[in-house]
Structure formats: structure tokens, C-alpha cells
């Protein structure tokens, strides 16, 4: 029939392949709403029985993507590797960082959902399931044993966030975020401002702000004393 039946589930729901459960569900409801018959946007668009098969397809997408096991199998079949589905663990195994090895498919990588109030040791929780073997080859491996520009970038990318999105959320100019990631210290603002930027950036990524500020500023200091 149409692209509704031929595109992959992510394109069908218009979500990022790394989207969490909540986003998948919201996207499903949004698409379902569009084909419900009450939607102004699609008034008179669908012909005949097409709308039935589109709805079936949407349900199928939700059925697969809302279940971590099914989703992983689907990812592997469609893309040859599994995407990290960040907050999948939050649904089924809330806060059990002690046993990450039991879920070797990457869904233990709990993420960006915690933007406002970081958990007591969020960086630890984040760092816990990082043994490289547990991750599919394409999912960026993040080492939060130390925090520096590249590791901030790696966390951001694993969250599926663009600099633009972080900038929109934190109101920090995109180029500053980029300089932070690239560790172009000379171009960064004075410490007072940088501290605030790092804190906000860390919060947006869901990692420990205090640790981020301390470790990053140390790196900056080290680099500068090295230069002199």
C-alpha cells in the first residue's frame, strides 16, 4: 500500500532509534491520533480500508518497540545492531545497577530521563554498566571513570542528543558547548561562567554536575599549566 506499511517502526512512529519507552509510547499515541478519524490533519486523506491496515501497523510497532527483548531482536534484524534504549530498565528493573550484567543488551544504560535532579551517585550508576563487551559494537562506549570533553560528547551522543538540543535546553550558545567538548580552553569563558555552563550541561546529560565541574576544571588547569 503506502509507506505506512513499508517504513521501519522508528520512521513510522517518527522517533529516534534510541528513544526511550516514554517517547515511543507518546509517539505511538500521536500517530494513532492522526488516523483516528477525528484528526483535522488527516481529514479526507485516507481512502477505504487503508486506515485499518495503518492502525494495525502502528499497533505492531508499539508491540515490538515497547518490549526490550522484541525491540532488540527487531533492531538486530533491521539494522544489524541494537540501539541503546535508554530508560527501558526504568520500567522493569528500577534502580538495580548492582546487576547490570544480567541485561547485556544495552538497555541497562539508564540515561537522560534524569535531567532535573541527579540521583545521589548518578555518574556511578551511569558508569556501572560500561563493560565494553555488553555493548553492541556501534553503541558508543562511555567511560565515566574520568570526565573530560570527549567523554561528555560520548555521553551526549549515546543519549541521542544534538548540540542544538542541549543548547535549546540550557540556553548555552552551541559553540561554547562545542568548545567544551573539544577542550578548546582558550576560547571558553572565564571560570565563573564556565562552571555554570558545565553544571547545566551535566544536568542536561543526566550526569553528576559537581563531579563534572571539578574534573573538567582540573583538566583545564592541567592543560594551561602545561602550556606555560
Amino acid at each position: 500500500m503506502s509507506y505506512y506499511t513499508s517504513v521501519n517502526f522508528y520512521d513510522l512512529l517518527e522517533v529516534d532509534p534510541r528513544a526511550g519507552q516514554a517517547d515511543v509510547h507518546a509517539a505511538y499515541l500521536r500517530q494513532l491520533d492522526l488516523v483516528s478519524g477525528n484528526s483535522l490533519a488527516t481529514y479526507g486523506l485516507f481512502v477505504g480500508e487503508d486506515v485499518i491496515s495503518i492502525r494495525q501497523r502502528l499497533e505492531e510497532a508499539l508491540h515490538v518497540l515497547s518490549d526490550p527483548e522484541r525491540r532488540r531482536a527487531y533492531d538486530l534484524r533491521m539494522f544489524n545492531h541494537s540501539f541503546v534504549s535508554p530508560d527501558a530498565r526504568a520500567d522493569t528493573h528500577a534502580a538495580r545497577p548492582a546487576a547490570p550484567a544480567a541485561h547485556a543488551d544495552g538497555r541497562e544504560a539508564r540515561a537522560g530521563a534524569v535531567t532535573e535532579v541527579p540521583a545521589p551517585e548518578p555518574a556511578e550508576a551511569d558508569a556501572a554498566p560500561k563493560a565494553p563487551a555488553q555493548h553492541p559494537p556501534h553503541a558508543p562506549h562511555v567511560d565515566l571513570h574520568h570526565i573530560d570533553g570527549p567523554s561528555l560528547r560520548a555521553v551526549r551522543e549515546r543519549r541521542g542528543l544534538t548540540l542544538e538540543a542541549i543548547s535549546a535546553r540550557t540556553k548555552i550558545a552551541q559553540y561554547y558547548l562545542q568548545y567544551i567538548e573539544e577542550e578548546r580552553f582558550a576560547r571558553l569563558p572565564p571560570v565563573l561562567y564556565l562552571r555554570a555552563y558545565l553544571k547545566q550541561y551535566a544536568q542536561a546529560l543526566g550526569i553528576d554536575p559537581e563531579r563534572t565541574v571539578n574534573e573538567y576544571l582540573k583538566r583545564r588547569e592541567a592543560a594551561q599549566s602545561h602550556q606555560v
Binding site: 503506502s2 509507506y3 505506512y4 492522526l34 490533519a41 487503508d50
Partner: peptide, 19 residues
Amino acid sequence: VDDLTLGFAMRSSVEKYFG
């Protein structure tokens, strides 16, 4: 706002249904 976001929904639906 719903009137305004109508454009996004139309774009999405028409692309997927009409191709």
C-alpha cells in the same frame, strides 16, 4: 497552537500515505 501544529501533522501524514 493546534492550528499551527496542523502543518507538521499534515506533512507527516501526507509523506507517509501519498509518498
